[in-house]
Amino acid sequence: MIIKYFAWIKNITEIEEEIINDVKITDINKLKKVLSKRYPKLKKYLQKNEMIQIAINLKYTRDNKPIKPKDEIALFPPVSGG
């Protein structure tokens, strides 16, 4: 699956996007665990829904939804457009 990072989250990951192929990542919570290990500085933010929002295939999700290998997952802070 492709993982995209935006705004200050990118400062922590130091990349804009990456492909993670791991059959064990079947839902958002599992992805969060993998990302917390990969980016320890991201862990505290991933634990709070209000700090990092998640979109699966361009749609917001607040719950622990299942994810598939071809999905595009985006992690971003609360928006500030307009």
Binding site: F6, A7, W8, A55, Y60, A74, F76, P77, P78, V79, S80, G81, G82
Partner: peptide, 19 residues
């Protein structure tokens, strides 16, 4: 809801904003 993010710059430093 629209996925835009503002980084605001001052004479010294910057801040990511939140609506």
């Amino acid at each position: 809801d629209a996925p835009f993010w503002k980084k605001e710059f001052y004479n010294e430093g910057y801040k990511w904003l939140k609506n």
